[in-house]
Amino acid sequence: MDDRGEGCRIACLAWGSLLWKPGPLPLASEWQPDGPNLPLEFARVSDGGELSIVLCEQSPSAPTFWAPLHVENLDEAREFLRQREQIDPRHPERIGHLGPDGDRRHPDIAAWARQHGLDDVVWTALLPRFDNQEGRLLLEHEAIAYLESLEGERRDHAESYIRQVPSSFRTPYRERIERHFGWFPRPA
């Protein structure tokens, strides 16, 4: 609670499936398109087979989405996001936040939060992953080869994921995927 007796103002950032499947996240509004610019790329082979978009320091920045949360405190916000993302509780670092023990690698998030009068921000902090190696960034040609290797429902799922990510996320890998497969974003 803040000194006015109101709940903390905490927001969640989004750039992938949270936008169309927020699950248990207690959103206090629709997603807003004016989140902080962050380096993002389709660089994580996810458990469902899709090539998901994640923070990737080597990538160009793109504007993210955000929404305030109906939560009382940071721990509650982090737990809702952890559950939604099905992150093992033994890996709390995979839920980013700004607080005293939070992530300092993204000063743009802190500046953006101050401008919006937020007490804290949470986000999914999964690493790139390829060949079951956390932190392993797949190269652009490996991303194409991986997607080409998919068949049936896994391929359909991977295509659907990429098409559902808003068109505002223009990344080098996405542009190559569009040219190679014709998987363009679906209209909003």
Rank of each mutant, 00 (worst) to 15 (best):
M1H: 07
R4K: 07
R4W: 02
G5E: 00
G5V: 00
E6Y: 00
C8E: 15
C8M: 15
A11T: 12
A11G: 11
C12Y: 05
A14P: 05
W15T: 03
G16W: 01
G16N: 01
L18N: 09
L18G: 08
L19F: 05
W20A: 02
K21L: 09
P24S: 12
L25Q: 07
L25V: 02
L27C: 06
W31P: 02
W31S: 00
W31Q: 07
Q32R: 15
L38I: 05
L38T: 06
P39H: 03
A43W: 12
A43G: 13
V45Y: 09
G48P: 01
G49S: 05
S52Q: 00
L55R: 13
C56Q: 14
Q58A: 11
S59K: 04
S61F: 01
S61Q: 09
S61I: 00
P63L: 02
F65V: 05
F65N: 04
W66T: 05
A67R: 03
P68M: 00
L69E: 03
E72V: 14
A77Q: 09
R78K: 12
R82L: 08
E85V: 06
D88I: 09
D88W: 03
E93P: 05
G96T: 05
L98H: 07
L98F: 00
G99M: 06
D101Q: 15
D103W: 04
R104G: 12
R105V: 03
P107G: 07
P107W: 04
A113H: 02
A113Q: 05
H116E: 01
D120Q: 06
W123R: 07
A125I: 06
A125Y: 12
R129V: 02
R129W: 02
F130N: 01
F130H: 05
F130P: 02
F130Y: 12
D131G: 10
N132E: 10
N132K: 08
Q133R: 10
E134I: 12
R136M: 04
L137G: 12
H141P: 15
E142Y: 09
I144N: 13
Y146V: 14
R155Q: 04
D156P: 04
A158K: 07
A158E: 10
A158L: 09
E159F: 11
I162P: 14
R163V: 14
Q164C: 13
S168W: 11
F169D: 02
T171Y: 03
P172H: 02
P172C: 00
P172W: 00
P172N: 08
R174M: 10
R174K: 11
H180G: 09
W183E: 14
W183D: 14
F184C: 15
R186L: 15
